[in-house]
Design a protein around this nucleic acid. Structure first.
Length: 335
DNA sequence: GATATTTGCCGTCAAAACGG
DNA sequence: CCGTTTTGACGGCAAATATC
């Protein structure tokens, strides 16, 4: 949280490191590092990062006491003071923090318990109304703060993001680029570097019908109207410059990254297991995109709040000055 | 320079919210 | 009511930063 000058109140508990230099917290759920000599490891050594470390997150907490859970299932209760300054705090500022207790949670073992533990935690962390709801409610009264648009706001910069309104088919090319073929027929290159919109290309799903192995072919239309038919594992992309390139599509066995839909085919004749996994992939893909979008909106929302804080602080300052001036003018003897 | 810690982002899950 | 969308929560990774 980097709202300037406005003290952010940690919503649940306080996040701290024992006996070390800094204290950090983020919104609502924080990560806790237990540093220094008291560094704690998951028994299985599961803090499987390149750099050894332990992270924990809040499971509950009241002002002054935070209960955090470390990966191994242990619960550590930490007594602390409310620290209102976010970000890094130098040694003189931080107050002593004691690890009050380290206790094994009864259900640290066993998958069934683990599930119920997760549930318990989720219950503890009662869900608050969504930020968008709160924000829209807030913004119904005061001026100078823009509402978060329900609609997707114009993307700054290039609009290379893959459309999320209707699900495109995503393919990874042999060069590592991703190609999205939207139902509308637009083909987008979604590479890490930059994307370019390519029109005039279409992906055609030719349903397998009776066959259990659906075929996927594409045709491409060149600028001069010529049509190209391509093998099932290739995609042609024409850049804005006019340059036409053929890409090889990787197959699932070739190590397609998670979530990449390998092919879109009619479900007819597809084994239930395959169908289920296809559905799952689809769901994951959609959710991935949704999460991305949600984060974008959230960032926007936080920016709006920061603006709001700045505006209100300004107003406050102006009003105080005005009041002071009026007092001086009309009741100079006051105080 | 090595190690420790923080921070930001991502993918996934699950539950709330929403829309038909 | 049910399917879909949205979003909080969480675990994980890696880059950035701090500290030794």
């Amino acid at each position: 949280c980097r709202v300037p000058a406005a003290p952010c109140i940690p919503p649940r508990g306080v996040w701290l490191r024992e006996g070390t230099r800094s204290l950090t917290w983020t919104l609502r759920i924080a990560r806790v590092s237990i540093g220094g000599a008291a560094r704690v490891r998951d028994e299985t050594g599961r803090a499987a990062n390149v750099k050894p470390r332990v992270e924990a997150r809040a499971v509950s907490g009241t002002p002054g006491v935070s209960v955090v859970q470390i990966p191994g299932g242990q619960t550590i209760e930490v007594q602390s003071v409310i620290q209102t300054q976010p970000s890094v705090i130098q040694t003189p500022t931080i107050q002593t923090v004691q690890v009050a207790a380290i206790a094994d949670t009864e259900d640290s073992e066993g998958s069934v318990e683990a599930v119920s533990d997760t549930k318990k935690r989720r219950e503890i962390l009662s869900r608050r109304p969504s930020y968008r709801k709160i924000f829209n409610e807030l913004s119904s009264d005061p001026p100078s703060v823009s509402r978060i648009d329900e609609e997707k706001s114009e993307e700054e910069g290039s609009g290379q993001t893959i459309s999320t309104t209707t699900l495109p088919s995503i393919y990874q090319t042999s060069t590592g680029q991703y190609i999205a073929i939207a139902p509308g027929g637009a083909v987008q290159l979604a590479s890490a570097s930059a994307g370019e919109n390519v029109l005039g290309l279409q992906g055609l799903s030719v349903g397998g019908g009776q066959t259990s192995t659906p075929t996927f072919v594409q045709y491409a239309q060149t600028s001069d109207g010529q049509q190209l038919l391509l093998p099932a594992n290739q995609v042609v992309v024409q850049a804005a410059s006019g340059e036409v390139q053929t890409y090889q599509i990787r197959t699932a066995s070739g190590g397609v990254p998670q979530g990449v839909v390998v092919a879109t085919a009619s479900p007819t004749g597809v084994a239930p297991v395959e169908e289920a996994s296809r559905k799952r992939e689809l769901r994951l893909y959609k959710n991935r995109e949704a999460a991305r979008e949600c984060r974008r909106k959230k960032k926007e929302y936080v920016k709006c709040l920061e603006n709001r804080v700045a505006v209100l602080e300004n107003q406050n300052k102006t009003l105080i000055e005005e009041l002071k001036a009026l007092k001086d003018l009309y009741c100079p003897k006051a105080e």
